[in-house]
Design a protein around this nucleic acid. Structure first.
Lengths: 344, 344
DNA sequence: GTGAAAGCGCTAACAC
DNA sequence: GTGTTAGCGCTTTCAC
């Protein structure tokens, strides 16, 4: 049974507008869709009929007839666990939503539940949306790549370069992790640090790989040993603490550490303090992402800002252009920027 | 112009399934919708045809015929500024999305842009969604209340009790702010604190009012002056710092302070430290909400946990029941819980 | 239990 | 420029 409310008081139809304005339905449709070739007088006549009736076009009917849904799916693989634990997602959603608010498209949020992986896929391929945005932070997972044959798709982040699925095929929006990390390390070196260790991320994810590569490029000229200054974490706070402990246990001199994200950087604080060392006097710390973990930490964290809201907006924009057949680059790279705070 | 991809390779229709299974479209429709009165053999025949063709029902067509969209709007007034600065929204969205993933409804995120207030309203009233969820943290703003005449609506938080719009009319989901705050204060008193000040929120928002009321109820029996121990903030970090400074400037003895949310509580840390006082030794601090501000602060913040993800899920559940005509209470109150950390 | 037929509200050729 | 005419893919009486 369906509630009375759901059925609701009858909403005015295009036909009613046509009758009231004394024109055909086709004409009303033209006015509604802003067709250029309609007499000004008729346009205003129709317009007032629309206003008087408070007419709103029915999306379902419009979609059915035009074969366009005006819907854009934002797909978030639930494997990401408590998805929004990472503020990155929230920002992406915000960016997408705000960009779309300026268009005629509307946002359809889809959490792809792992138990029914096919549900999301089928929904997307069933012509229920005009395009899809796929987000799975840090992973570079493009397992939805096959969808690209069915509808326009834009990913967040560069894909993992796996054999089998050619590189330049997907559309994606991301940041230059290598350059961003390099900048952070150079800042440390410019500040007089001579032994910059790294708490790297998992090496099976593009950001994990690229940020470590950025570190390598920057410390290249430093005298001190290299790989002996790298430990790995999994982007969580705890893993940062543990990695830092291992680093300190090595007994080699370290006067700075660069973590692959803010959570791990703040986690490192704990290990550094355990040893009675001061931040930044004894060891400077820099993170990556620029989220609240670093903002509210004490001391506040120097980090590489990743414009996640802009990333969301850019993804939406690329997708809309793709849908509307306008020219777009397959790859869009947004700039990062260094935010210097108290920890360095 | 529309891209080739958007039009895409022809998706299988119900008619094709019918042909393949050797039955009528009506029968396929019944199977798809789980009608009980279809022969088992036919059901399986249709089912295999569906699987073989990889058929997915077209939402637009279904909506048009059934007058149900299977879409639920989540409306967020953009006045909330950079909406997701408050983690509350992200959690709500998460809760809603996850609950809906278990239903046949899909989430339509709508950021109501202030410049075009009518756009959202008309969209909602135009029969484009089956129901709406309205969220505007802290404000209790039910200015979308008139929508309730057009479609099922569920709000987050109790409404501001304004004249003109009767009380018990809206459906909403919230927490018991009074009881939650009272519990926090009682915890402080039980811990030996004798002069518990309050950094209250704006008094034109339900949570601002109720949390202060909770404080009043709990400190009622304390000897120390009352209103002289209250200062107001606007829920931001900075306002918490300023309110705490004013409190300390009064020169009255204070050994604990309860802020109406975590941001203000953490903001108070700054003012307390400026005076050379220690947390919690000299002054204990408690917040409200339980978000990352308190989690990552040093010392970590004791706070009243507000189950925002559950709130989102509950809102979605209430709305779905409303849409489907099942019985639901107008008011749903979720429990808060005290999280004791280092600051008290 | 199953099929036939009539729309749901709109767009898009195609005529005029 | 404007109206006519077909559908878009599905649900839903109503017969059988």
């Amino acid at each position: 049974m369906v509630s009375e409310l759901a059925a609701g008081p009858r909403v005015p139809t295009l036909e009613m507008v046509a009758a009231r304005a004394g024109v055909s339905r086709a004409t009303v449709s033209r006015v509604v869709n802003g067709s250029p070739r309609v007499t000004a007088e008729i346009v205003s006549a129709v317009q007032s009929a629309i206003d008087e009736l408070n007419y709103v076009p029915n999306r379902a009917a419009r979609s059915l007839a035009s074969r366009q849904t005006q819907l854009i799916a934002l797909v978030i693989p639930e494997s990401v666990g408590m998805v929004f634990d990472d503020p990155f997602f929230a920002s992406i959603v915000q960016g997408v939503a705000m960009y779309l608010a300026s268009t005629d498209y509307t946002l359809n949020m889809l959490i792809a539940v792992e138990s029914k992986p096919e549900k999301a896929r089928r929904y997307l391929m069933g012509g229920n949306v005009d395009g899809a945005l796929i987000v799975s932070h840090h992973s570079g997972d493009h397992s939805y790549a096959h969808l690209e044959r069915s509808l326009p798709v834009v990913f967040a982040g560069r894909p993992l370069s796996l054999a089998g699925h050619g590189q330049g095929e997907s559309y994606y929006v991301g940041v230059d992790d290598i350059a961003g990390e390099r900048g952070a390390i150079e800042h440390l070196i410019a500040g007089g640090r001579r032994s910059v260790a790294a708490i790297a991320g998992p090496q099976d994810m593009p950001p994990g790989l690229d940020r470590l590569e950025g570190w390598r490029q920057a410390v290249g000229e430093l005298a001190l040993g290299r790989e002996s200054l790298v430990e790995y974490g999994d982007f969580t706070l705890e893993s940062g603490t543990e990695a830092m402990r291992r680093l300190l246990d090595r007994g080699v001199f370290i006067d700075a550490v660069a973590a692959a994200n803010d959570q791990m950087a703040v986690g490192a604080y704990t290990a550094i303090r355990e040893r009675g060392l001061r931040i930044p006097e004894d060891i400077a710390v820099v993170g990556f992402d620029n989220n609240y973990f670093g903002l509210t930490a004490t001391p506040t964290l120097t980090t590489v800002h990743q414009p996640s809201t802009d990333l969301g907006a850019a993804m939406a924009e690329v997708l809309v252009r793709l849908i509307e057949g306008e020219p777009v680059e397959r790859v869009t790279i947004l700039p990062t920027s260094l935010i210097v705070r108290q920890s360095s």
